[in-house]
């Protein structure tokens, strides 16, 4: 039997259902795992995603033809059974399960195991073939407990605040920014957000996710209000004139890449906090094993290294070409806010 999901110049493709998964070119029908720009692109005829992803997709892609479903809800197309299962990556993120003629394939999209307070928890989905990401697929990447990281961020912010210095956190505008808002104790201090983060906050609220109130930086006319405050912005704002209004400030990047000392220095931030919405080395291994898959494809990240490691451990694995990027050291999609 030929492969149920293959890599084409347009994207990952399921032939019997004639549908693309997270395509990187315009196609008639697309199923989307989540709303990050490397997985959800413009120009497709119709989109299918989870209910929570729908407002996020619309916020990112504009007025698109999009249908949404619940997790575990079965859709049958040409005898192919398709369902979405929580991936725990960001709100509305899903793994795509495809069953056809007794064979089950699962495409993970991006995923993590930690509960993040805003996304539905990852759900292990047994399958014959598992298509996994490997953004952090090296044994060096082993995340510290997120609660410990949130405490470190809180302490950093409070110390800056006591010195009258603003704290600028650079984080992905979709997912990471809301995760920070959900975990930091912000009851008695206002938190300001960059326009890109604001847009995503609103979209998350439309998806029914509860977030604390924040103020948009561009709506503040008195820069003194920023004194000692917390500001959340995409990393593309680092080193731009946008930062000028904050007076004395310290910057920190919140990313899995901050596990690398060199990455923080290269990006010239004062601090780096190791927090990722992707599975670390141990989680990748646990999930791959847990699915019981007899064959694994790796789409992005350290694909060659991770698949060689899996093969040596008795799990046949290969690289499946894709154009996904996973977590990047800077977020490239955010428009500059004037």
């Amino acid at each position: 039997m030929s492969d149920l999901i293959i890599s084409t110049p347009y994207g990952l493709y399921c032939e019997p259902a004639d549908i693309f998964l997270d395509p990187w070119q315009s196609v008639p029908k697309a199923i989307i795992t989540h709303a990050h720009s490397d997985h959800a692109r413009r120009g497709c005829g119709s989109y299918l995603c989870h209910h929570h992803a729908k407002p996020l997709l619309k916020a990112r892609l504009g007025d698109i033809n999009v249908q949404s479903v619940e997790y575990n809800e079965k859709i049958i197309i040409n005898g192919v059974t398709i369902s979405l299962h929580p991936a725990g990556h960001i709100p509305g993120s899903a793994q795509i399960r495809i069953e056809y003629q007794g064979k089950v394939w699962v495409f993970s999209g991006d995923y993590k195991l930690h509960h993040d307070g805003i996304s539905t928890n990852f759900e292990l989905t047994p399958c014959h073939v598992f298509i996994s990401e490997s953004t952090f697929g090296l044994p060096f990447f082993q995340w510290p407990p997120p609660d410990q990281v949130f405490q470190e961020i809180q302490r950093w912010w409070m110390k800056n605040k006591s010195e009258g210095v603003s704290s600028i956190l650079f984080a992905y505008s979709l997912g990471k920014a809301q995760r920070l808002l959900a975990h930091l104790q912000i009851s008695d201090s206002p938190v300001f957000v960059h326009g890109a983060v604001h847009t995503m906050n609103e979209a998350c609220k439309a998806a029914g996710i509860k977030l604390p109130e924040t103020l948009r930086v561009s709506e503040v006319y008195d820069n003194r209000l920023f004194k000692g405050a917390l500001v959340i912005a995409p990393s593309s704002a680092n080193g731009t004139p946008w930062l000028r209004r904050f007076g004395p400030y310290r910057t920190a990047i919140v990313s899995g890449w901050m596990a690398l000392r060199g990455a923080r220095r290269w990006q010239a931030a004062d601090r780096g906090f190791v927090l990722s919405d992707h599975a670390d080395w141990n989680a990748l291994n646990a999930v791959v094993k847990g699915t019981g898959a007899g064959k694994v494809f790796v789409t992005h990240g350290y694909t060659e290294t991770f698949s060689r490691w899996l093969c040596e451990n008795g799990i046949p694995a290969a690289v499946l070409h894709s154009q996904y990027t996973g977590e990047q050291t800077t977020e490239t999609e955010t428009a500059e806010e004037s």
Partner: peptide, 11 residues
């Protein structure tokens, strides 16, 4: 794998 990782991490 340790050596591959070392090449990425650098140190």
């Amino acid at each position: 794998l340790v050596e591959e990782t070392w090449h990425t991490v650098g140190d």
